[in-house]
Design a protein around this nucleic acid. Structure first.
Length: 420
RNA sequence: CGGGGUGUAGCAUAAUGGUAGUGUACGCGGUUUGGGACCGUGUGGCCCGGGUUCGAUUCCCGGCUCCCCGACCA
């Protein structure tokens, strides 16, 4: 991608109405645009990052047997009345509107009812189970207050997976598999070290549910962490009885701010009974399906990466989610020979399948290009200039560490060739 | 939803009861060229509605907007 053709450019100052670090940096670097409180556009750079995150999420969900679907946002009322979640008194985050043809619809804020209804048609025997169905889809929640940039919005992507099992054993096995997959996802996007599987209250069917909380000063949540035990609990689970069950002493726990990046929850038979999803076991007995739900917000994950890994110069993307691998910064491009040379390097990198953003601006000065490059945060910056052309070596700077290397053209291609 | 703020050019900001200045960005000309250079020049602006007033961007009322604190938050 040529930077002169890239839609959006950087700006020196953040919009006055953005306070959150993630939104300031992502706005300045041209990844996102705020359309209203709690609703952001994802511009080409931003969408690339989301796609990278989603690819990782899909790989891990597919890896534990998940199958992807896509369900509608529009919801009619009767299904939700069966689970008693249509009434605004019961659920205060609904966006509702009228159908021209008559009747009221809501915009889905979650999909338990919907997927459970679908499953009724395809599950009738224990032989049909288990199933693990997920989607990455837009959710709407009429939050009282949107805040923290892209971390808490009224319209947002969510990866929501729903598990359907015949037995508690089956369910427990998948629940753990999904917890592991979640940890792998957070590892792969670069926030694993600071992300704790956190015990939260479990509702009617299990003692605990689990949140994945990433320790961050920008967090809205508070968790209590025992670093030596690698365990965290949220406020609901601070009672002595719960703590002793988990084998932690209250004195060991340190209060930390955190961001909830994922959530897994055992639903028991609440929705299967409400919606009427039953199967016949091997004795011919009719039983309700045991369910679980598992959520991750890709945009919130993106914001968490920015909050956690950026520095004073700008964003620092891990390679796994970076919009490009290499930022090829061309200097002295008014010189025809340097221009041809850098075009050749760009094409060579591109032809080798390396994702490269080429700063081909002729008029921009070096300082501006470097500042932009730091702000955008692509993992490797390769400088091509009159100097590097004459010396026959390219300057390669690692964004994260600042490490500078000088590589020949062959070394350069070999270096990135092995990583792609 | 309770409380507190906010709204001026694409962006960031200043002043003002007599129609607005600066930086940046953008256009043009020129000097520059490895960390957001400089000179000259130009384009471009007071959230919406009502009230007070000879006159309102400014004061008052209402609305909307966005931000913050709290509450809420599978």
């Amino acid at each position: 991608m040529r930077q002169t053709k890239l839609f959006t450019k950087t700006r020196k100052e953040a919009p006055a109405d953005e306070v959150a670090k993630n939104a300031q940096l992502l706005s300045r670097a041209g990844y996102i645009y705020k359309n209203m409180a709690g609703a952001y556009s994802f511009l080409p750079l931003g969408l690339k990052v989301i796609d990278k995150i989603n690819t990782i999420v899909r790989e891990e969900m597919d890896g534990i047997g998940g199958q992807e679907v896509h369900m509608p946002s529009l919801q009619e009322s009767t299904l939700w009345q069966q689970s008693d979640r249509w009434d605004d008194e019961k659920v205060d985050v609904w966006f509702k509107t009228k159908l021209k043809a008559g009747g009221e619809v809501g915009l889905a804020w979650t999909h338990e009812e919907v997927i459970t209804d679908i499953m009724r048609q395809y599950v009738s025997s224990y032989k049909d189970l288990p199933f693990f169905i997920y989607q990455i889809q837009t959710k709407f929640r009429n939050e009282m207050r949107a805040k923290s940039g892209i971390m808490r919005t009224r319209e947002f992507w969510m990866k929501d997976l729903y598990s359907f099992c015949a037995t508690e054993e089956q369910h427990a096995e998948f629940y753990e598999a999904c917890a592991s997959a979640y940890q792998r996802i957070f590892d792969r996007i670069g926030i694993g070290e600071k992300t704790y599987r956190t015990f939260a209250s479990g509702g009617a069917f299990t003692k605990f549910s689990h949140e994945f909380q990433t320790l961050a000063d920008a967090g809205e949540d508070i968790v209590y962490v025992s670093e030596q035990k690698g365990v965290a609990v949220n406020e609901e689970v601070l009672a002595e009885a719960d703590l002793s069950e988990l084998g932690v002493d209250k004195e060991d726990l340190v209060q930390k701010k955190s961001i909830e990046v994922g959530n897994i929850f055992s639903l028991g038979t609440k929705f299967s009974e409400a919606i009427g999803l039953y199967y016949k076991d091997s004795d011919g007995e009719q039983r309700p399906v045991i369910m679980g739900s598992y959520g991750i917000g890709p945009a919130r994950a993106m914001g968490t990466v920015v909050d956690l890994l950026s520095d004073e110069k700008g964003i620092v993307w891990p390679e796994s989610v970076a919009p490009f691998t290499v930022h090829l910064v061309g200097l002295n491009l008014d010189d025809a020979e340097v221009r041809d040379h850098s075009e050749g390097v760009y094409n060579a990198l591109h032809d080798r399948g390396i994702e490269v953003l080429f700063d081909d601006r002729v008029e921009a000065r070096p300082g501006e290009k470097f500042a932009d490059s730091d702000l955008i945060g692509i993992p490797y910056r390769v400088v091509v200039s009159k100097k590097t052309k004459e010396e026959g070596k390219f300057e390669v700077v690692t964004r994260k560490s600042g490490e500078v290397r000088y590589l020949t053209e062959d070394e350069l291609y070999a270096d990135f060739g092995t990583q792609s």
